[in-house]
Design a protein around this nucleic acid. Structure first.
Length: 561
RNA sequence: UGUCCCAUGGUGUAAUGGUAACACUCCGGUUUUUGGUACCGUCAUUCAAGGUUCGAAUCCUUGUGGGACAACCA
């Protein structure tokens, strides 16, 4: 009976593989996963698929998940990125079993390499990279052997040792696995295991001047950590053969032999997802940094006001498969709206203020009106707002000649001020250019919201948000939109993706009037600006200068018509 | 002139040889003191051709289309 109550959830193909392994006798308490970022950039929503998958599996099977920094290339990797990655994962609510570094295994890797040389499975090559590239052939033409391929074990040992001692310049010698130069899989054509690099490493300092390559490092690191399932993206499919070959060189039958499986990367339309391109946006100052709210990075989404829950939900809904995904950013937006709709307090904020004077409201009078914080959450309570003779409404909410089907204030057309009174437009005051700079109106004093009067219950076409002209705080509001104006900015190789930048991806409004209730708002606080959208307090915001970032607009079924 | 992977509405994901479904998008409607939410509804799907089978989205073959593979990157 209990099983019937459990939600039936289809397994994705990775879970299916794991279930199959368990059914074939693999002990589920030996399950272990890892998330292996390279610390050479910030985590983005594409990585979220990988870490949500791995940590999700860990949670589902109650198995440990290691965080392993794949730090084998000191020319690109930095501590800054390590720290940022850890921060992002923690923010996402993920807890790794162990914090690991490939660089912790340099000695073990080196020892194994010596073993391979002794077994005749690795040799030192001393050609230029160009010569080696030529010998490597092409996908359709087999490669040819290096003239150094048959050096003696002694010579290889000596050379490799001297590489390690720092006797050679970068590029002079490398260590290669001895596999098969004619293999149909080019990765198997004597892949490079070590290169000389006279660079200081963010963790090992100057201890090493030879650094292992990805293929040699990754599978062995999985093996050292006893990872049962090593999940990576599709472009590593061809590497699997090499992954297995390297494992064959060191694997002890009594231990867990890691299994690599590949899933497709997540792509989002209207953005780019490669670290290189994101880095370019940062370096060219097209965005303010890795955490610019328009960036698809975790830090950018955070600053934009996204929640970990919404990101988890999005990844969950997007699913896992082997097909190339191009997910509609509308799905991401629907996830954050769904979350924020339930969790954020409503607030009134007038982004483009237009002064409105209620001529029959007593001068100097103010009154307190009660506003509910969140109609989706009865525990959210109420707050007080101050109503007065002069208030601000949205410029866009006034239309001099307003047809009744449009929910705006017009001359002779009534609207309701939310939580306030019903008003009727009387006169538009204009400047010399004909712009409306102030609107005079009258109010129905018996129509106060919540008063229970007949007048208050009238159906009125349109309800506006507002703030008292003398009781509000000024704020800056950053309206963010998608960074690119086309669905696939990097779709064509010949066209620079940066030529598709959306020139209107950010509009800064400096004269917004916000309800007093937000005077103590702190960075990361999130609100729904009623009738406008979801906003969060920017990290650079201060009490003296409040800054809000637009996370998402409210769905708008009208403006499109 | 190769090897490998993939192919289900516009997008993404299910259906594990037995009624092709769910989410998002789009469009329409009901409710509404947010043109929000909620609720209801419409449109729309198995790349093609053969084969196996009582029965194929699923298995096989061929074709077509898309993607990956020639960094001392990961």
């Amino acid at each position: 009976m209990e099983n019937l109550r459990e939600e039936k959830r289809p397994l994705n193909f990775i879970e299916q593989i794991i279930e199959d392994d368990i059914n074939d006798g693999f002990s589920s308490d030996k399950l272990k996963f890892r998330f292996p970022p390279e610390p050479n950039g910030y985590l983005h929503i594409g990585h979220a698929k990988a870490f949500c998958l791995n940590f999700g599996l860990g949670a589902k099977y109650n198995a440990p998940v290691n965080l392993r920094f794949d730090d084998t290339n000191p020319s690109k990797e930095e501590q800054e990125y390590v720290d940022a990655i850890k921060y992002d994962l923690s923010w996402m609510g993920l807890k790794w079993a162990e914090e690991c570094y490939s660089s912790d295994y340099f000695q073990q890797l080196y020892d194994w390499a010596i073993l391979m040389i002794k077994n005749g499975r690795a040799y030192v090559d001393s050609q230029s990279s160009e010569a080696m590239a030529t010998q490597k052939g092409t996908p359709t033409v087999p490669g040819t052997d290096s003239p150094y391929r048959n050096r003696t074990v002694e010579e290889n040992l000596d050379l490799f040792n001297r590489m390690k001692q720092g006797e050679f310049k970068e590029g002079e010698h490398i260590l290669r696995a001895k596999i098969d130069m004619k293999h149909t899989n080019m990765l198997m054509r004597d892949p490079i295991m070590y290169r000389v690099m006279h660079k200081s490493h963010h963790r090992t300092g100057n201890d090493w001047c030879i650094y292992p390559m990805y293929d040699w490092t990754h599978g062995e690191s999985d093996y050292i950590e006893q990872i049962s399932h090593s999940l990576c993206s599709l472009e590593f499919k061809a590497h699997r053969e090499l992954y297995d070959w390297f494992l064959d060189q060191v694997c002890d039958a009594s231990k867990i032999r890691p299994k690599q499986r590949e899933f497709s990367r997540l792509n989002l339309n209207y953005t780019v997802m490669s670290k290189r391109k994101l880095m370019q946006l940062v370096e060219d100052k097209i965005v303010s940094g890795w955490d610019d709210p328009r960036m698809p990075t975790i830090s950018g989404l955070r600053r934009r006001g996204y929640t970990p829950a919404a990101i988890h939900k999005f990844i969950d809904v997007a699913g896992v498969s082997k097909r190339n995904q191009m997910i509609d950013v509308a799905l991401l937006e629907s996830c954050i709206r769904a979350d924020l709709n339930k969790t954020t307090n409503r607030i009134m904020a007038v982004l483009n203020p237009l002064k409105l004077v209620i001529t029959n409201y007593p001068e100097g009078k103010t009154e307190v009106v009660m506003a509910e914080n969140n109609p989706e959450d009865e525990n959210a309570g109420h707050r007080e707002m101050i109503f007065s003779r002069e208030i601000y409404i949205e410029k866009d909410d006034f239309l001099e000649e307003c047809p009744n089907k449009i929910f705006k204030l017009g001359i002779g057309k009534e609207v309701r001020l939310k939580h306030g009174y019903i008003i009727n437009g009387v006169e538009a005051i204009k400047d010399a250019d004909g712009n409306v700079i102030e609107v005079l109106c009258t109010y129905d004093e018996k129509s106060k919201s919540g008063s229970g009067t007949e007048e208050s219950k009238r159906k009125v076409k349109g309800t506006l948000h507002w703030v008292s002209a003398s009781h509000n705080i000024k704020a800056q509001v950053n309206e963010y939109d998608r960074l690119f104006s086309v669905e696939a900015p990097d779709g064509e190789k010949e066209i620079d993706f940066k030529s598709h930048i959306n020139p209107n991806s950010l509009s800064i409004l400096n004269d917004c009037a916000i309800e007093l209730a937000l005077k103590d708002a702190k960075p990361q606080d999130r609100y729904q600006f009623q009738r406008i959208g979801y906003f969060c307090v920017d990290d650079d915001s201060t009490a003296e200068h409040l800054i809000f970032n637009r996370t998402a607009t409210l769905k708008d079924g009208w403006s499109k018509k």
